[in-house]
Amino acid sequence: MSAKRILVVDDEASIRELYREELSESGYSVETAASAREALQAVKTSAPDLVTVDIKMPEEDGISLLREIKERWPRLPVVICTAYPVYRQEFGAWASDAYVVKSADLGELKKTLRTILGE
């Protein structure tokens, strides 16, 4: 079985780097995008199995990105990965399949990915 492909969307390079390294090590094939535009492009070209999105990004609001992905690829699992624990209710239910608060400990994120990807 080939590695599952994950697209990490975050405007902070150090976060992208951390996630790439951690998730690669966990056996995922990781691609990253720094903006909504880059992200839509990457979904189209690489067809990831799952996307993680930070809901607050410069340039384009992460929320519109979520809406667009859900419209165009309704079956693509999206995990919100954010510094704001307080919007869980607003977005957790309709815009994403999971809502993870960013932490130095990636244990929760990894567990969420495993659950969604059915591993």
């Binding site: 902070e12 150090s14 976060i15 951390l18 951690e22 510094a83 608060v101 960013k102 932490s103 130095a104 400990d105 990636l106």
Partner: peptide, 11 residues
């Protein structure tokens, strides 16, 4: 704060 913290802690 959370982002840099996550990065610091993560690395």
């Amino acid at each position: 704060i959370r982002n840099p913290l996550a990065v610091v802690g993560g690395f």
